[in-house]
Amino acid sequence: MKRSKCNMESMVSAYMDGALSEVEIRRFKVHLKECPECRESLKALTALDKVLRQSSDVSLSPDFDAVFYEKLNRESRKKSWFLGPAPYFSGLKVWAAASACALMIVTGWMLTRPDPVRMTAEEIVIAKHFDILQDFEIIDNLELLENWEALESGEAEL
């Protein structure tokens, strides 16, 4: 497609289609007298519109209406089966019903889920100081270390 050199050529279509303001129309008419390129473009595009409008409309298939109403009936049947109670649950009511269902599901889950592991107070303390208690065995056997020399010489027994 050849690019136009005239920057007003882009107004040709809008001029043809009556899409310019009165001021623009006056300006463009003056311009047309001076610009052969825009005159040529206007002539060609007007002829193009005539050619395009000569292409004929197609007739509809004889069964067009029947096929459409069959589709419409099929859809209405499907809709009435799927959304039977829909008239009773429209707009905000749908949201309210959905929220109630969601609430019931969450409550049911909370009530039926298995109990979490319950710990005694002592176990909780152990868990909190687990690092210290890991060394408990050494602390518990400190007495052995104190008597180590006696044990080694055989003066004491375990």
Partner: peptide, 24 residues
Amino acid sequence: VKALIHRGRNMLKAYLKDYIDREP
């Protein structure tokens, strides 16, 4: 829209040149 229609018409003008030339 203005630009689309104008560009569209110019493209069609190129494709249908033979028919446009015969138009008068």
